[in-house]
């Protein structure tokens, strides 16, 4: 009954739209065929993408929620149901000091990245936005660290920062012996070392985004300001920066999401030993050590769910509060 109704309704719509081109009363069956064909095409075009995206991105998260309710070592189907114990039980993730330290480290990385990379990237982007010979080359060099694989970056900095490695040697050669530290071995320091490596790796990304934003700032505005007697600094502060707002807000969003999920660089630069002290672990490295390496799939899944809720919640919140205006067309529907 509903099906026939639906077809009938669509026929009417189609008939109405055909009205402008002249009535064709005898073609209604071929019209239905065309509508059917349209739907076949839509389904044929979208179904593969929808299926693969649903299966490999969304479905696993559902499984994580289910697995997280069990104590499960990964063989056979999960059967030892323990409710929310993996979350809030006496040995649950939220009560585990190692998880708490991982969460705190993530938060430090989020704010550290924003506060260090943000001003640095803005300054460098303004610098590289000036006209000078060789500017294109400088822009390219600054972007190189971002293109390197995380593994490359991790292995590279681990060697550079090793005790009495090249970094320490250069410091000594510069007469800065007092600055030499056990960069990757000191539990109080290692997180800041990691933050430094992350800054080195991802600063270029922020700079490129900001340069693209700057290229959208019409030159007439700064020229008009210059004619009115504004100096370079005044122009940057009063004209350019405000217009860069949307770009900065989107960069901050991407940076925040990346920082909450960070895995590769941390995993490769630090040792398991120092991570297990809680000195440099993140939610993602903790999840992989506990779930994958220690084969506590139920517990690891609980950590996944917490990581998901925090990241997704932060993303939605940020989008609601900050990005609403900027993302028209990208993350909201385009009219």
């Amino acid at each position: 009954m509903t099906t026939t109704n639906r077809i009938h309704a669509e026929d009417l719509v189609d008939f109405a739209s055909a009205g402008s081109a002249g009535p064709r009363p005898f073609q209604s069956s071929s019209r239905a065929a065309r509508i059917r064909r349209k739907w076949y095409e839509i389904i044929g075009l979208t179904l593969p993408a929808v299926a693969i995206y649903t299966l490999f991105v969304l479905v696993p998260m559902g499984f994580a929620v289910y697995y997280s309710l069990f104590r499960w070592r990964g063989s056979g189907a999960p059967s030892d149901f323990i409710g929310l114990d993996n979350y809030i039980g006496p040995y649950g993730a939220l009560k585990d000091p190692l998880f708490q330290s991982a969460l705190m480290n993530n938060i430090k990385i989020v704010f550290g990245s924003l506060l260090i990379q943000g001003p640095l990237a803005i300054a460098i982007a303004l610098l590289l936005n000036r006209r000078f010979r060789g500017r294109a080359l400088f822009r390219m060099l600054v972007f190189v660290p971002y293109v390197l694989a995380e593994v490359t970056v991790g292995v590279m900095w681990r060697l550079i920062l090793t005790n009495d490695g090249v970094f320490d040697t250069v410091l000594r050669d510069l007469g800065l012996d007092s600055l030499v530290r056990s960069w990757l071995g000191d539990p109080n320091l290692v997180l800041w070392t990691v933050l430094g490596v992350l800054t080195w790796k991802y600063l270029g990304f922020a700079i490129i985004l900001l340069l693209a934003g700057l290229s959208n700032v019409p030159e007439e505005l700064s020229e008009a300001a210059a004619i009115d007697g504004a100096g370079w600094w005044q122009i940057q502060w009063h004209v350019t920066l405000p217009l860069l707002g949307p770009t900065i807000r989107i960069w901050a969003f991407l940076s925040m999401i990346g920082s909450l999920q960070v895995f590769d660089v941390v995993w490769l630069v630090t040792t398991q030993a120092i991570r297990s002290l809680g000195a440099a672990n993140t939610m993602a490295t903790y999840m992989v050590s506990e779930g994958f390496l220690a084969r506590s799939w139920g517990y690891g899944s609980a950590v996944s769910v917490i990581l998901f809720v925090i990241s997704f919640g932060a993303a939605l919140l940020y989008q609601r509060l900050v990005l609403r205006r900027d993302l028209q067309g990208a993350l909201t529907e385009r009219s």
Binding site: V57, L58, P60, Q261, V288, S301, A315
Partner: peptide, 22 residues
Amino acid sequence: YTYFVLGLLFPAAAGILPLYLL
């Protein structure tokens, strides 16, 4: 479209353990 766009907000790393099991 929104269903796909949601994937941009979706933290990929979070699903990696169950993805491995799947």
